[in-house]
Amino acid sequence: MAESNADSKELLQPSRQILTARQRAWRSFSSNRTAVVGLALIAVLVLIAIAAPLLSPHDPLAQSAVNRLETPSSDHWFGRDHYGRDIMSRVMYGARIALIVGIASVAFGGALGTIMGVVAGFKGGRTETVLMRVTDVLLAFPDLITGLLILAVLGAGMWKMIFAIGITIAPRFARIAYGATLSIKEMDYIQAARAVGVKDLRMLTFHVLPNMLGDIVVLGSLWMASAIRLEASLSFIGLGVSPPTATWGQMIRDGTHQLAVQPWFAFAPGIALLIAVFAFNLAGDGLRDAMDPRAQS
């Protein structure tokens, strides 16, 4: 009897090996060196974006006609642009637009796409056909072309850019959410909830959505990289936030015309953009592996 008592006590003791899914994901993520590097780079970027007024060595808008296209010096690390503005300060301020557009468009597109997918999967019938057909059509086009088309109709600007990128990436979320909803819908606990008369909206918010949140977050982190790149591409084409606000894409565009004279005009924002996209790709990859139990062998 005493022996079995000891056994059950042992069983009640939480073992060190048993981790919650979240703890396990964090362990896997933090032991992934490249993912941690990505996360650290993101932290630096966010810090630069927030503290740009404190960190930037010069006013990003201050012009100086006599010093235009000055090459790098100890005072202006990346030199000056065609209006004589300090490039390093503009690159730092550019991180703001990149991150704001990146985060806001993924949040908007992720939310819109998830709602589309969940509603299509849950409602079925004509709603499903229409929503998923629209999704398929949007998915067929390259991101850049969809983004361009929407901005062509709406005109340039930051909020329009966020809207355009959001619409472009929403179908990716719709597909995942749709698939997840179809499988969750058949689960016993949903049937049980339906049997006790839980209303549709409540069912979606409290029973269906939480179950796919992990997938959606991973997809969001992976699409952050693409959203930032898309923002820069659209700004490069000339559809971004209007000047004189510093954006990386716009700077690269202006710098392209001065490659022979002042290559750092295009290189500095280009490298910043590369680092940002790389960082989100690394962190997103790590997060995906961490959340996927199959990858943890």
């Binding site: 990289a225 790149r229 820069a232 591409s233 490069f236 690269i252 710098g255 392209t256 490659l259 290559p263 295009a266 290189f267 280009g270 953009l273 590369l274 996209v277 790389f278 790709n281 690394l282 990859d285």
Partner: peptide, 17 residues
């Protein structure tokens, strides 16, 4: 992974340079 992260227009500009 670097190739995947490279903004295509920036790569093109480096090529030109």
């Amino acid at each position: 992974l670097t190739g995947l992260s490279f903004p295509i227009f920036f790569l093109a500009i480096l090529m030109i340079y």
